[in-house]
Write a protein that binds this DNA or RNA. Structure first.
Length: 290
DNA sequence: TCTAACCTGATC
DNA sequence: GATCAGGTTAGA
């Protein structure tokens, strides 16, 4: 299930393998997966590849003629180069024919993934990109604090909200919260500056480590050339419910937070409460120093 | 804030 | 044969 590190790994590979290539033709094999904005007739092909960008989990391939292909892999989407040895995979829905005889294919068994071909929209005015919050990887601790502090929401769903902050999914939110020692149901506004800074550091470390390891492979994700990621070996909590906490040796617990499967350590990630004029809010306990 | 919907494949 | 997995959106 691709999150920021997995998408970044795909982006890097594409930037290299599409260098100096042109896109000649697009074939849609299944309706609804690829859409055109405004229409297919407006597409200006062939078009030279200019570069691959990413915002959160959204991949943006830029082409000549003010054209951009947005790719969201969602849960099971995958880009690959079919060839004589490895023909089209089942559930291949879109083919991008390049001018060097290669084809870049998009397959997605569950068909959650989406591709949008934008024509004539300046890159910085693409609505799907602009509606996303700042990218989780290129965000200062100050901005991170400003995003979290005023919100009266549980921290896990807040971090998963792509409008607030883009790139984090279930795996990396659980990992980051564990590393920072924060309970997934902790109300964001109740977190101290110190703890939000610690969470920011945790997010950075977790994402960078994951990128270095080529992402996590749980069920579906394979890198661009079909290789599996390695980061799942470093997971402290995700997929480890019932196992020993690597910090305290206690048992990791699985629960639902905002309808999402959540694994955490009840001992290392305790709820903390805000102090106002010496009193705990609504009878809650007072925050202990981090 | 919550639920359902979108989907298939893996697993129980 | 039922359940679960999870990113995102729409709608209550």
């Amino acid at each position: 299930m691709p999150e920021l590190p997995e998408v970044e790994s795909v982006r890097k590979s594409l930037e290299i393998s599409l260098e100096d290539v042109g896109l000649a033709r697009i074939d849609s094999l299944f309706p609804g997966v690829l859409t055109f904005c405004p229409t297919l007739a407006e597409a200006r092909l062939p078009a030279k590849f200019l570069g691959a960008d990413r915002r959160g989990k959204m991949l943006a391939l830029r082409f000549q003629g003010e054209q951009t292909l947005l790719v969201h892999l969602r849960m099971t989407g995958r880009l690959y180069f079919p060839n004589a040895e490895a023909p089209l995979l089942p559930h291949t829905h879109v083919l991008l024919h390049l001018d060097d005889q290669r084809t870049l294919a998009f397959c997605d068994p569950r068909r959650f993934g989406r591709l949008v071909w934008h024509v004539g929209t300046p890159f910085d005015r693409i609505p799907e990109l602009n509606r996303l919050g700042p990218d989780a990887l290129s965000l200062s601790s100050k901005v991170f604090f400003q995003l979290l502090k005023p919100r009266n929401r549980m921290i896990k769903p807040l971090l998963l909200d792509q409008i607030v902050l883009s790139g984090l999914g279930n795996i990396y939110v659980d990992e980051s919260l564990f590393r920072a020692g924060i309970h997934p149901k902790q109300i964001s506004a109740d977190l101290s500056r110190k703890r939000i800074d610690l969470l920011w550091e945790s997010v950075m470390e977790v994402l960078q480590k994951a990128i270095e390891n080529g992402g996590s492979t749980i069920r579906d994700f394979v890198g661009f050339s079909g290789e599996a990621g390695n980061y799942q070996k470093h997971h402290s909590v995700y997929g480890r419910a019932g196992l020993e906490c690597v910090k305290c040796g206690g048992t990791l617990r699985r629960t639902l937070v905002a309808q999402r499967g959540t694994t955490y350590c009840p001992h290392c990630q305790r709820m903390r409460y805000r102090r106002t004029k010496g009193k705990a809010i609504r009878g809650r306990r007072v925050e202990t120093s981090p």
